[in-house]
Nucleic acid binder design. Structure first.
Lengths: 344, 344
DNA sequence: CCTACTTTTGAAAGCCCTTCCATAGAACTC
DNA sequence: GAGTTCTATGGAAGGGCTTTCAAAAGTAGG
């Protein structure tokens, strides 16, 4: 059927061990033999059988990524970084889209099947506690991206720092009545961004009505969605409070919903309300959003590098890197040019 | 180290054959034995080793998808359909992002490594001719999505039909001077959409200046990008021709660039220029684009179903399904409500 | 030219499973 | 109860590779 090392061995008049050694560039093979084997292998168009290799090597050269379902543009950009780095290394990537915490468990379980993958990248989702002990003890290579656990490597965004910069930017533009449209507080980034928002205002001596803050209670994507942004703003407007002159929105995708809601109420951005959001996904520039940029591609890249290191040094100390987001000023905050988006 | 069927066999006082039979729900095992084995397996927290299984079964329960790098929103949505269907079937998905035709070859090569995957989905990229003969002969399960080859299963969008509907829509709104901002003609969809656009105009007896048509010469994503749309429109405006009252744009993402270009020139949409585009990616509704909807999620779903069928019946006749896009009327064509997007 | 190493090589063992084959025992038949 | 047919079971073979081990061949030293 398909060509095996046995065929090559026979044809080249050598043993299978020698063939294997040649194919793996192991030491101690005469140039002559090496060339003979290579010639035959090429002639027969030999392709190593990945699973047999994996079985023998106890290494699969495959990673899995568990991500909160594709929907979110943030992950797509991180994944690009992951994918590109991986493919230069000859690794494959298995993608698992999870919609809820339970699925995370399922996939973790599946990935764990020994040998299936060499490691797993977990994105933005909490690591279920019941896996912690086992994974830590077995030293399962696990890298957390945009989420955290003290016992595993992680790559994070400095949400607190980012929210502070965003809030300070609004303050520096003179805004004193500021609101926040937030995602679901069950997500750590949402909590952290809110906390820093509050703290920054407080430190500046600015007090806002509690009603200025709207937390999403949506499950899907933890409320990091356009719909959630739309509803959040609508809910705020329904509260009958004086409309703040500025809003900090916990993600770009929500900000797009917020814009839609404001448009519907004929509230102009940035003339009536300034907006600063978070992420700087590709979308953001289409909407001229001022936002906190996360180096997503880089994060993906680094995640892979950490993973490889972890696989090679299972006993290295756990490390956590935190990327500081940078402010990208576009039109939605009013600092720059006229915003393009308003109703006339 | 990790638990194998031998451990279970020993502990349960049975042979490994019996263990395997129990685990695979094969016939002819006494209830008593079955239960004993299951109990032990559970007690030892047994996980089958995926690669050993794959090796023995000659089936990996894994598919690969080769896609023109993530960038494009179209694929993300199709992939959701793929992923969700796959995970209900217990299959895994390996993702390969390709940036050019050469990489397609590489990945095809890699996937082919016998046993690595049970089949491959190729998205929107041409199947390199040098693989055709070999794949057809070996009956490699290959499903083409949004691309075509007579010797393999495919799922397509009826680009011609879609372009016709879009053009007719603009004609029905009374437009007689219409332009088209197209992607790179090296892509089949771009060619097909253009051809139908021309033909529909001709059949309606409408003649337009050749200069009304701008084809992208960008490589990246075959010109299906925001930048390409922006530059396309700018190039048109630079030609000094009378500005048409309507444009057909070959994708939503380009249309966003087109909008940006028009905005910069203070040309209002839809008052001055009506826009109809193609795809209906999630983005489109954020920009209130009238567009040709492709059932992307469904396409992904169907792709997987076809693949499974193909794997199970390697000799079934090749089939090709074509999805007809539907017109989604939003504001950018002016048929509906006021467009929200104009400069005042 | 013989001994003592070193390098190269072939082949067996092992990775963990599924599947096939042979056997033992149970269940039936007459 | 002897003969026949089934069912349940154990275990070997096989899938394709890497790696270890021992033997063969080559090299160097005296």
């Amino acid at each position: 059927m398909s060509v095996t090392i046995y065929d090559i061995a026979r044809e080249a008049n050598v043993g299978i061990g020698t063939v294997s050694r040649v194919l793996n560039n192991s030491a101690n093979v005469t140039t002559e033999t090496r060339e003979r084997v290579i010639t035959v292998a090429r002639k027969l168009n030999y392709q190593p059988h990945a699973f047999a290799q994996a079985l023998a090597r106890k290494r699969s050269n495959t990673l899995s990524a568990i991500i909160p379902f594709f929907t979110n543009y943030f992950f797509i950009e991180v994944l690009q970084g992951v994918q590109e780095t991986l493919s230069t290394l000859g690794y494959d990537l298995i993608i698992h889209g999870a919609n809820n915490q339970q699925q995370v468990g399922e996939y973790l379980q599946r990935s764990m099947r020994k040998g299936r993958v060499d490691g797993t990248l977990l994105f933005s989702l909490e690591l279920p506690e019941n896996f912690v002990a086992e994974f830590a003890q077995k030293k399962v290579p696990l890298v957390l991206v945009d989420t955290f656990h003290p016992q595993f490597d992680s790559i994070r965004v400095d949400n607190a720092g980012g929210a502070t910069i965003a809030t300070e930017h609004l303050l520096s533009l003179g805004h004193r009545n500021i609101g926040m449209i937030n995602a679901n507080l069950q997500s750590a980034p949402a909590r952290e961004r809110l906390a820093s928002f509050r703290q920054t205002l407080q430190q500046a001596g600015v007090t806002i009505p509690e009603g200025n803050i709207v937390n999403s209670d949506e499950q899907k994507n933890d409320g990091f969605s356009r719909e959630s942004g739309f509803r959040g703003m609508m809910e705020f407007l329904g509260r009958g409070l004086p409309v703040p002159t500025a809003f900090f929105v916990s993600s770009d995708i929500q900000a797009i919903g917020v814009l839609a809601a404001l448009r519907e109420r004929n509230i102009r951005v940035p003339e009536d309300v300034a907006i600063v959001s978070f992420d700087d996904v590709e979308l953001a520039k289409n909407f001229d959003l001022t936002t906190m940029r996360q180096p997503m591609f880089k994060m993906g890249e680094l995640a892979v590098k950490k993973m490889i290191e972890r696989i090679e040094h299972p006993d290295a100390p756990v490390s956590s890197v935190s990327f500081k987001p940078g402010l990208v000023i576009r039109a939605s905050c009013g600092a720059n040019k006229q915003y393009v988006f308003h109703e006339q």
